[in-house]
């Protein structure tokens, strides 16, 4: 059910996406600066993450298949197709729609292919900053930067898929900006 549904959707959204891309590349009246893409290794890590995370469904389908309740292939084939789609195609697309921009006084994070979201957090509103590294991230030298604000909405804003060194550098830059604001 999943892949077919998604593919149909994709056709519908191609036009909208084209418009969106125009926005992402800064062709708006706001003349926002160009967005920085994430580290390409993010595709690999999110592939691994979803491959591992969705494995139980494949196993479940395998078990149901083994039980031979329905004609062969009823469970396994659609589940495998969906699995392949989510694991191989989705991460690459997700990657294309992520982007960020480190300004002098604000951090802008853009994401979302179905549900587009474009968040700006001024450095002056950041409470504290996390740099997280999971085991998979560590293998590929990636890290996730999370900034915490005092707001109820967007109390944490996360930016995954950064090169670890970049994440640390961004943290330093934000911290320095906060410090400077106070002086």
């Amino acid at each position: 059910m999943f892949p077919l549904h998604r593919l149909k959707m994709e056709k519908n959204y191609r036009l909208a996406n084209a418009i969106q891309c125009a926005h992402i590349s800064g062709m708006t009246d706001e003349n926002l600066p160009e967005l920085t893409p994430l580290d390409p290794a993010f595709i690999t890590t999110s592939r691994i993450t979803s491959a591992l995370g969705l494995l139980p469904f494949v196993i479940g389908a395998g078990v149901l298949e083994f039980a031979q309740l329905l004609p062969p292939g009823t469970f396994l084939v659609p589940v495998l197709l969906a699995y392949a789609f989510v694991v191989f195609t989705v991460p690459a697309r997700k990657y294309r729609y992520w982007g960020y921009d480190m300004g002098t006084d604000r951090l802008r994070i853009v994401r979302g292919y179905m549900f587009y979201s474009d968040t700006i957090v001024p450095f002056g509103r950041i409470q504290h900053i996390d740099v997280d590294q999971g085991p998979i991230d560590r293998r590929y030298g990636l890290a996730k930067l999370t900034v915490h604000t005092a707001g109820n909405h967007n109390s944490t804003v996360a930016l995954p898929g950064l090169a670890h060194a970049d994440a640390l550098a961004m943290r330093e830059a934000i911290r320095a900006a906060i410090r400077q604001d106070m002086l």
């Binding site: 959707m9 959204y13 909208a16 418009i19 969106q20 979302g112 179905m114 549900f115 587009y116 979201s117 474009d118 968040t119 700006i120 957090v121 001024p122 509103r125 604000t149 005092a150 707001g151 109820n152 909405h153 967007n154 109390s155 804003v157």
Partner: peptide, 30 residues
Amino acid sequence: VQSIEIAQGPLARRYGLASLKFGIAGGTLE
């Protein structure tokens, strides 16, 4: 205001509409 987010669902995007979510400490404003 703590943060500002422009959000668009799949439908709103087709019509060029968006919502603007403001992060406010202790409350919401959308």
